[in-house]
């Protein structure tokens, strides 16, 4: 995001919040709590242990997400560089990519119970294949011309992998990690809502409250956390590789 866009971004947010405030006051807290009521709901939520629930939820999410990165990236790269691996794995990638994570819930409860393993597994299923797909596309899309340059300068296969392929993959891996993270957080909330535990459990329970203020406060919280993590990943990518954004724009 460019810096000179910031005032306009803020204006957009302020206008939307204003509309929500007016609409909320007209409809009442029972249907749509206005931002002022949502803000007021936070102290009570924190007293009820929202922060702890969020922390645990994030931990569970991170375990599943880390596994997704560890599995998705190498498999995606392998598929992108080996035709044999592509043939073997592509049908699975295609099928699992479109599988609804929610539909897996009953099966996963049977297998994993309702604890950390269940949540982690669901997060894994929701994010691994997006990460794999982006890594696959990156590995396939590596500039042939750059590989030709490496060959011309006498690079061995190992050198070409380390000095051309891996850095060339980097923007794709960051993009894959970001997309995967969004899916991972969504899956975490959903998983916890199904089994009524943790942060998702709080959301599920607050649906029964007379006021929607608590529910909306939880939604806003998870949205902000998701946004912040995504930004942090983007910034990390940029820090590690200053050319990352430029190459994103270039492709």
């Amino acid at each position: 995001m460019r810096r000179d866009m910031l005032p306009w971004n803020l204006l957009g947010i302020v206008v939307a919040l204003g509309a929500w405030e007016i609409g909320g006051r007209m409809l009442g807290d029972g249907l749509l709590a206005p931002p002022s009521s949502v803000l007021a709901a936070f102290p009570a939520l924190l007293r009820d242990g929202m922060a702890e629930a969020l922390g645990t939820a994030m931990l569970q999410m991170l375990v599943g997400y880390a596994c997704a990165l560890l599995v998705g990236i190498p498999l995606g790269v392998l598929m992108g560089r080996s035709r044999m691996a592509d043939r073997l794995l592509h049908p699975w990638l295609s099928m699992l990519l479109v599988t609804s994570t929610a539909a897996l819930v009953p099966l996963f409860i049977l297998i994993f119970g309702t604890g950390m393993a269940f949540c982690g597994a669901l997060v894994f299923m929701a994010s691994a294949f997006y990460i794999m797909l982006t890594a696959y596309q990156g590995a396939r899309g590596i500039d042939r011309r750059l590989m030709a340059v490496a060959r011309s300068f006498g690079a061995t296969r190992m050198q070409a992998f380390r000095m051309v392929l891996l850095p060339g993959l980097f923007p794709y891996l960051v993009t894959g990690a970001r997309v995967g993270l969004v899916h991972a957080i969504r899956a975490m909330v959903m998983a916890q809502m199904f089994v009524m535990v943790g942060f998702g459990g709080l959301i599920a329970q607050s649906g029964f409250d007379a006021s929607t203020a608590g529910l909306l406060a939880l939604l806003v919280t998870i949205m902000l956390v998701s946004l912040a993590l995504n930004r942090a990943l983007d910034a990390t990518g940029h820090r590690l590789a200053p050319w990352y954004r430029a190459s994103k724009a270039g492709h």
Binding site: D143, R145, L146, V149, S152, M163, S247, G250
Partner: peptide, 12 residues
């Protein structure tokens, strides 16, 4: 050593 058509530098 070769000089390539589009320079073909490593962007990173």
């Amino acid at each position: 050593a070769m000089v390539f058509q589009g320079a073909d530098l490593l962007p990173w």
